[in-house]
Design a protein around this nucleic acid. Structure first.
Lengths: 362, 362
DNA sequence: CTGAAAGCGCTAACAT
DNA sequence: ATGTTAGCGCTTTCAG
């Protein structure tokens, strides 16, 4: 009788079935010929003992864990989790599990989590980097572990990445606002040293000059994290200046939420009626963001699927085109109910790079 | 020279440092006496080889993985992820990692994921059950793995659980609406076979009768999943009936969002001015839910911390009070800006059970 | 078709 | 203070 406090091993099964452990292994893994009778005996023993295979032991033997390590700056962020869920949808059927960790937007914590994932022998990694620094990704151990960066890139790091074409998205927003008749457009965003914040700022600056719109520096606001509080603060700052514009591009959903709440709580009806936003991100509560005429909707599912495809390819030993930089087109939403005006989509499938005919300097 | 394609093992380190593997192990784990010199040599070898300890091998040896398995019905759900993030904040410093999986709200998938986690030898499990059925939690393997259920309970399953006091929350909502002068209050919720949906419906029914308010069945709507689409649909249904109430309790944030969007898009100013909601959940976009006078705000952090504390306790072999049922008081929000009226909090700390003086029948 | 034995990387007696 | 060795649970040659 086995110890009740410890789960049964292949040995217990072998003993009960009256065969060797090798036979049990073969029977369980449908390897080469095992007589139907013995197989049946093994299966019965398994059933009786409630035996479960020990993946840890298999991992040690195979030197692979069928585990993917994930590092995200936050877990309580719908954007990251939508991507991760799409990822799991692709990876789970292939037998992969995910160890998901948070870097809490700290490079230090990111390093720590990276080390943990390495020690846990993950077969691959997906990282949404928390900062622009990434020396820790040069770690020797990473030479053997496929790594894919998502959403934010890290300069000078030659590694696979998947991201949304931020500049393209912003470009379309400016185009749409201009099309609606706005020539003065403010910018509300975050510290440009964060990859996405920087790309969206650059996209804004590029698009403004491309369309011959004047950039008024005092209304180009990019400070701190892209949070709800900063969205409130920056809109307030912009509106406190004399002769401010009424149209703004806002760099993400949290800032957009903050700006909208600020407006509702502080502006009079006349001011409210003039306010117009275009912004990045389109989430479940988008219909409540009433000043929003246009939005860039990132395709979470698609991002997740692209990451999974690329990762699976690398895991399979295919290093074709490394380092690959996958740039995904976001969907452009026109919110007609709020006052958005549909526009001819002249360049729907071309990236901002193609539009500007700028050479990629990656 | 070691093979460049495979990471260094303790053996490689031993060879390079000119010592035995046992010494390397001792040096690395700060076990009993190792001469400062040898330790230095070992550390140098580690550095030179880029050695990382192999947690898989340690797990096999120790028969514990320092891994917690998590099953959530969705990963792209802010409620679950807030709880999980709080959990990680407590567990990570203790050296635990989390394998996070999604059951996609399917009992079948939940079973599959449960099996995977068992095979991966997780030390403990945290499950947000996807259904009311839970025979699979009776699995023999689970006898050795601490399991904590969160948010939703499963009937007849004797296991630790942590949840929000749903009935208390609803009770306060009804009390607040009555206090504001509403005597007719509709209910918009989900299929009561889901634990939370059922509890919130029961809470509504209890509170209505406790306060002597008439329950009008045609305005007590509980169908399907608690989704945005169903929130829209059920409010529409209620408002299409003659002589409908203007106050509604809505059972969660998605339905609340749907109901609000339906109202904004379809009602005239007169109708809008009369509409009043009280609801479960208070998330980042709560200020935009303009008909909401009162809300029950679940304390994600606290839930996560309670789960972590209990889990850590079980992991430490302390089975005191098993099965423990932790019932957490939500925070009651009065949204004065929308028209909510603060009320004397006579029974802030008492649970619905105490208020009703009902015996717990768990 | 089945069994014996080696070994995945590590730790911990047990020696020395 | 350090080395030798058994063994965690499994898969897989290699024999029979």
């Amino acid at each position: 009788m086995m110890d009740e406090n410890v789960s049964a091993t292949i040995r217990d099964v072998a003993r009960l079935a009256g065969v060797s452990i090798a036979t049990v292994s073969r029977a369980l893994n449908a390897r080469d010929g095992v007589k139907a009778n013995t197989k049946k005996a093994v299966l019965e023993a398994v059933e009786k003992l409630g035996y479960n295979r020990n993946e840890v032991a298999r991992s040690l033997k195979f030197r692979q864990t069928r585990t993917i390590g994930i590092i995200a700056p936050e877990l309580s962020n719908i954007f990251f989790m939508e991507v991760i869920e799409a990822l799991e949808r692709c990876l789970a059927p292939k037998g992969y599990s995910m160890i998901i960790t948070s870097s809490y937007d700290s490079v230090e914590e990111e390093k720590r989590k990276l080390q943990i994932l390495i020690e846990r022998n993950v077969d691959g990694m997906v990282v949404m980097p928390s900062g622009a620094e990434g020396d820790h990704f040069l770690s020797k151990a990473l030479a053997n572990i496929p790594l894919i960066l998502v959403d934010r890139r890290i300069k000078n790091l030659r590694v696979d990445s998947v991201e949304t074409d931020n500049r393209f998205g912003v470009h379309k927003m400016i185009q749409a606002l201009k099309n609606e008749g706005f020539h003065r457009i403010g910018f509300i965003g975050g510290d440009p040293s964060i990859h996405t914040a920087g790309e969206r700022l650059n996209g804004y600056l590029e698009a403004m000059s491309l369309y011959g719109l004047r950039i008024e520096e005092q209304f180009v606001l990019h400070r701190g994290a892209m949070t709800q509080a900063n969205g409130r603060g920056l809109l307030q700052q912009a509106l406190s200046l004399p002769d401010h514009p009424h149209a703004f591009f806002i760099a993400n959903d949290s800032m957009h939420l903050g700006a909208t709440i600020h407006a509702i709580e502080n502006l009079d009806a006349n001011e409210l009626s003039k306010l117009v936003f275009a912004s990045f991100d389109y989430l479940s509560y988008a219909p409540l963001l009433k000043f929003c005429h246009y939005a860039v909707s990132q395709q979470f599912e698609q991002i997740g699927e692209e990451v999974a495809t690329l990762l699976l390819q690398r895991l399979g030993g295919n290093w074709e085109g490394f380092p690959k930089r996958v740039m995904l087109q976001p969907e452009i939403k026109v919110i007609v109910a709020s006052g958005g005006i549909p526009f001819e989509e002249t360049s729907k499938t071309s990236s901002i790079d193609e539009i500007l005919q700028v050479e990629k300097t990656f």
